[in-house]
Amino acid sequence: MGYQIKTEDFDAVLKDLSQNYRIFAPRLYAGAGAFSDTDRVEYGEIGSIGDIEFDKKSDFSFKEVLFPQSEVLFYFTEDEVKTASEEPKGNIIFLRSCDLHAVRRFDEIYLKNDFEDLYYARLRNKTKFILMGCPKSFENCFCVDMGTNTCDAYDAYVKADEDFVFVDSGWEALTEKLEGKSKVVSVTPEFVQENPVHVEIPEGIELKDVLGLPMWEEYNNRCIACGRCNFVCPTCTCFTMQDIFYQENGKVGERRRVWASCHVDGYTDMAGGHCFRNSKAERMRFKVMHKVNDYKKRFGYHMCVGCGRCDDICPEYISFSGCINKLNNAIKEKETDDNEE
């Protein structure tokens, strides 16, 4: 069921919901970009519909709401361990279709991957997702080819203009607050139908097929192993652990889960000084294979959702979509050469 509600009345609904929920959405932070006099669009808490940046793609994804950059898991002393307290409020997250598909990827890793992760589960179970439409494609997006440009697994859909907010609500608590303040109308989500960027993903490839491909060597020279592509990606789920010991008492402290990146030094370090994937070429190969091949073998669909943030953020202008297409071409050439032999 759809609703048309005045902007000020919808803001009142958000204020009411904020009693029990923290509300996150893409926000424009003026002058906070990577360069002087540039802006940044990042997720932050909002208090009104006017705080939301609808017209620009967020530079960073929603994931730090459900998967904080640094999260205390437990506190410890010599004699006991105490699990970190749960955030009392739930979360409401405004996000686009590709990011909502990314939530499914996180659920696979942290809820269904042999065991349920307590810390993710307790945040996820108290989170509602409000879909933001995409009437047109943003730069570097390839969600259509990844099949993530449309979705129906949202709790509500919201579209705003100057005077009104249009809502498609499947969330009972929100519907109750809308009734009496709005009129019933037909509301249909806007989904992008065409991207300027296209990818062709090779299917069913094995590691032996890609190990010696010359294309990977390009990234030894171009990639600087900063990990920015991983940190903005809505489907990268890797972390490392840090134990923080309090200065007052070296036997008391806390353990934190902190984001990690397959591109940065130290990610594959093991006891005894062993390290896998030392070169940047090997790290790029690992990431690409994981996003568009290995994950699908296990879960049945690709990990990458085609949001294009990795292309947007890379300081060396490395294109992930371009890398996928290079891989596809390289596999075809290898198959042709093998057949000729």
Rank of each mutant, 00 (worst) to 15 (best):
Y246H: 04
Y246D: 02
C238N: 07
N221L: 12
I244E: 13
N230C: 13
V252S: 08
F239I: 07
E248Q: 04
A225H: 10
Q247H: 07
N249V: 01
N249W: 01
Y246F: 15
E218V: 05
D243V: 13
C226N: 12
G250D: 00
R255Y: 03
V232W: 08
M241E: 04
F239Y: 15
Q242M: 12
R222P: 01
R228C: 15
I224G: 04
C226H: 11
R222D: 06
N230Y: 10
C233I: 06
Y219H: 11
E218W: 03
T237F: 15
P234Q: 05
C229I: 09
N230I: 03
C238Q: 05
C223N: 10
C233T: 03
R255L: 00
C238Y: 05
C223Y: 09
R228K: 14
E254Q: 08
G250R: 06
C223P: 11
T237G: 01
C238M: 07
C226G: 13
E218L: 08
R255T: 02
E254F: 00
E218T: 11
T235W: 13
N220V: 03
F231N: 06
E218D: 03
T237C: 06
C236F: 06
F231T: 10
R228I: 13
C229V: 12
C233F: 02
I244L: 13
Y246W: 07
F245P: 01
M241F: 15
T235L: 12
R222F: 07
M241A: 04
C233V: 05
C226S: 13
W216I: 05
P234M: 05
N221Y: 13
C223S: 10
Q247A: 11
N220W: 04
C238P: 04
R256I: 00
T240V: 09
M241V: 13
T235V: 15
D243S: 09
C226L: 11
V252R: 14
E254W: 00
C226P: 12
T237E: 02
C223K: 10
Y219P: 07
N230R: 05
F245K: 14
F239N: 05
P234E: 01
I244Q: 11
E248C: 00
T237A: 12
R256F: 05
N230G: 14
E254I: 00
D243Q: 06
W216V: 04
G227R: 09
G250W: 02
N230D: 14
M241R: 08
R255F: 02
N249F: 00
N220S: 09
Y246G: 00
R256V: 01
E248N: 04
F245E: 05
V252L: 08
R228W: 09
R255M: 01
C236V: 03
C226I: 13
T235R: 10
T237D: 06
R228L: 14
K251F: 14
N230Q: 11
